[in-house]
Structures are given as C-alpha cells and as structure tokens.
Amino acid sequence: MSAAVPIIVLFYVLGVGAWLAAALDRAALKLMAGRPLAAATMAEPWRQGDLHLVRQRIWTERPDAMNWLLAPALYLILAAVGMSVVPFAPGFVVADLDAGIVLWGACEALTVVVVFLHGWSANAPLPLIGAYRYVAIGLSAMLLSMFVLIAAALPAESLAVSAIVESQASVWNVVRQPPGLLLFLMLGLSLTLRGPFDYADASDLAGGTSAEDSGPARAAWQAARLAMLVSVSAMTSAVFLGGYHGPWLPGPVWMLVKMAGVLAALVGATHMLARLPPARMLTLLWTVLLPLAFLVLALVGAEVLLWK
C-alpha cells in the first residue's frame, strides 16, 4: 500500500506541474508584451487543451500510424520514468535504484528516439526536417549531460539519486559546480524542445515534428512536453539544488519550491533567449560546451580527491 503513495504523488506532481508550466508560458508572453496579467491566464491552458480535444484529427498520406500514435504516450512515460528516481523526501521515492542517474540518462537517450519517431512517422517534409535537426543537436546535448551528471555524482560516490541528494546536505552541487547546472538546464531545454534548443518543434518549420499534429494528438504531445519539463525540473532540483534540503521549511515543500523555480527559469529562457542556427549550435556544443563539461568533471574530481 505504502509503495503506491509515491507513484500517486509522482503523477499528481507531473500533472499540476505541467499545468503550472503551461500557465507560466502564457504569463511570460503577457509579461514580455507588457500586458496586464489576469487570473484567466491560469485557466487558459485548459481552454486551449479542450479546444484541441474537440478538433478533428488529420492524417497524412500513408503515415507510420503506430509510431505516430505511440510517440506522445512514450514521451509521457519517459517523463514519468525519469522522475521516478527522484526523492521528494528522505526515502519517499518511487524507485530508489542504485543506478538512478543512469536510468535518467537512458530516458534522455530514448527521448531523442521518441522525438525522432514523432517527426518521422507523419510522413511529411517539415516534421522530418525537424526530426533530423533534433537528432543532430539532441544527441550532442545528451552526450554532454552524461559528463555533467557524472560530475554531480562524484561527491556522492554513488549513482543513486537519493545518495546524491544526501551528499548535498552541507553544500549544494550548484555551489560546487555552477557550470554543471547551466549545462543541465540547457539539456532540459533540449529534452523539452524549447526556446534556444527548439530544433524539433520550432516555428520556422511551422511546428516541426508536430506540424501535422492536430486534435487530441496535438494536445497529448504538448502535454507530454510539459510533463518532461516538470521531470527535468525535478531532476535539476535533486541533483544540483540540494533536493529536499533547506532551512525552516519541511523537505517536500523545499523540493516543490525549487522545482517551481527551475520551471520558471526554463520558461523564462524559452521566451527570452534566441536560437542559434543548427550548424553553429553543433559547433558550439562540441567545441566549447563539451570541453567545458570535461573541465567541470576534472575539477570536481580534484576537489573530491583533495578535500575528502
């Protein structure tokens, strides 16, 4: 019985977080446009979601129907599985795996596959271009995140996320390795197809991999993207911001506050930052950011060796 509670909480957090992210998205646009924020902004995601649900679903000519239907579901499952290793309080976790951080890495890799499938299966040019572009950038960003995560796991001397959170009781990882947090947030943008890393679903491709989506399928895909954003913010809070550690407030509250903060930061980055052309982004990833990740890893290694 008690094993079911974390699972229920996980889906609850995913749902509420996704709604919060969608509302923040719209609020951010209004703030940037200088328009007044109304309470209706919070209900807007529901209204637009409902609109999608009643719309007709269009089909392209000879799509890969199975994969097209599966892609949003798989994306959502990956978000849930990735988040299942994150503890919300000491011992309050769905799957306290010894190799939790590797499981998250596997979810990252499979996310690239799912986004590719989503673009591929529509059998239409714009989604396919989006999918190809995303694989090039997404795979590089994901590769980089592995080193970032290993650097975060080094002080804990364990691959379990709960051990990584415990190791931050005195010093949060963001203090030990600030570039790591930035690189991981970048990966978060890439996993959720957002802002400066939106190479898959960008507006220059009329929606990219979801250009041919309509009706319930579109709603499902957008919801899965938002759920993945929540999952990323949970992982960021646990691995870099000390998870449930913090003064005064109880642990789970701290965790939720940090998640909301990361969510707001990612939504802000989505709307504030511009995107590089794919070729330049790829060069940047391989020649600047990947060496930076190596450097962080080496420095954290030296720190652990000297001060532990």
Partner: peptide, 21 residues
C-alpha cells in the same frame, strides 16, 4: 546487474538512433 542493464538501454538507444539515420 542493474548498471550493465540500464547502460545497455542507454547505449543502444543512442546507437539505434544513429543506425536509423
């Protein structure tokens, strides 16, 4: 063998993505 198992999933997801291209 949790590490090897999950690492296989991770590695093969990347490898088969490239394979598909």
């Amino acid at each position: 063998a949790p590490y090897i198992g999950i690492a296989t999933v991770f590695m093969m997801a990347v490898e088969m993505m490239v394979m598909a291209l």
